[in-house]
């Protein structure tokens, strides 16, 4: 019993907010993860909207290119894509800077993470949003066209608001995938939650404590976002008739 008490006390000490405890470090890691996930999700949604419109209304060339993009990204493991894109993106930026007469620069880790995960998310978002746009009753879009609405305003006023309620379940899934995929950036050495807890664990040798603590943090994040997305879905369905109602 005494040993158990000592274990509890030392665990609290390890997770304390102020150093020598690692609490602050873990929370900073979580903040980095949330930042990267938010950025990647936003970038993914933008690519997704463009991709979905390209797949639905684009020229045959655009359609084929989008098909190649979504197929390849969805067939290769995220871990491999992150490595390839990470090296390719940092290399390309450096080549560009060198060509413009600058010197090699260190790429901001968060920016590279957002870019890489955003490209991956974009492929999945394309498919989600394409399905959602197809689910919008075609009469609505035709009516807007008949009224002479220009395409951009049509998208902004009719298609995008109406497709939101169909897209949100899929987008919620994507957001959860984004938060979990940030863990993969540990392989390229970002100080996100998994990497930080790995450092804490190997420094203190308290492997179980830190991985369990990181798991709890991820779990809280996913529970909070599930609740948030449920609310968002309810909001996006305002004014719609309830199914089977």
């Amino acid at each position: 019993m005494q040993a158990l008490g000592a274990l509890g006390a030392s665990t609290l000490e390890l997770l304390a907010y102020s150093p020598p405890g690692w609490g602050a470090t873990l929370l900073r890691g979580l903040w980095n993860s949330v930042q990267i996930a938010t950025g990647a999700f936003a970038l993914g949604c933008l690519i997704g909207i463009a991709g979905a419109y390209g797949k639905l209304y684009g020229s045959p060339w655009v359609k084929d290119l989008m098909a190649i993009y979504t197929t390849v990204v969805r067939a290769v493991p995220e871990l491999v894509l992150i490595l390839i894109l990470y090296f390719a993106v940092t290399d390309a930026v450096n080549q560009l800077v060198l060509a413009m007469g600058g010197s090699r620069i260190e790429i901001n880790g968060v920016a590279a993470g957002i870019a890489v995960l955003g490209i991956v998310q974009g492929a999945y978002a394309t498919e989600v949003l394409r399905g959602a746009i197809l689910a919008v009753p075609s009469g609505q879009i035709e009516a807007a066209r008949a009224m002479g609405m220009p395409p951009l305003r049509l998208a902004q006023r009719i298609t995008l608001p109406l497709m939101l309620s169909f897209a949100i379940p899929g987008l919620a899934n994507l957001w959860l995938v984004a938060t979990k995929d940030t863990a993969l950036l540990a392989v390229v050495g970002f100080a996100e939650l998994t990497q930080v807890s790995r450092q804490a664990a190997s420094t203190t040798k308290a492997f179980f404590t830190f991985y369990a603590a990181a798991g709890v943090l991820y779990l809280i994040l996913s529970i909070v976002s599930t609740i948030g997305f449920a609310r968002l879905e309810k909001w996006s369905r305002r004014g719609q008739r309830r199914m089977g109602g």
Partner: peptide, 10 residues
Amino acid sequence: GTPLLLQLFL
């Protein structure tokens, strides 16, 4: 709700 990588580490 948790990343697979973390589960494997744990």
